[in-house]
Amino acid sequence: MESVLDLVLGHFNYWAVIALLMIGLYGIIARQNLLKKLACLSIFQTGVFLLFISWGYRHDATVPILAEGFSRYANPLPQVLMLTAIVVGVATLAVGYALIVRIHKAYGSIEEDAILEKDQQEQE
């Protein structure tokens, strides 16, 4: 019983994050609204950030700023990587939003199926 609890507690972070990832993935594929797609993409990315930070976590440790009286610190490397990844993610999102604005200007809609329908009509 003890070990099951340990397993659950030790892996709950991962499982919750996996659930986040899947919610994001589902939204990316299933939602027709472009803005919704981007939001879900962002959820997906954030999930990955959480995953990394969880990997860097250490019991009974402190933030990785060296100071007197502390000897256990969290792993700094995942944090560094995620700092970069967050910025990269936001840059991508910004380009995505800009594209949405342009698409709205060109089509008057941000629903993917409606846009495809308009293209079809134009071709005929």
């Binding site: 997906f44 990955v48 990997w55």
Partner: peptide, 28 residues
């Protein structure tokens, strides 16, 4: 239509890159 193509490319590309990133994390 280039706009929608670019948007789809962005979503797919970012998804791919993020999956890659998960792999990097696991390997790390």
């Amino acid at each position: 239509r280039a706009l929608l193509a670019a948007f789809r490319y962005l979503v797919t590309g970012t998804l791919g890159a993020t999956l890659f990133l998960i792999g990097v994390g696991l390997a790390y």
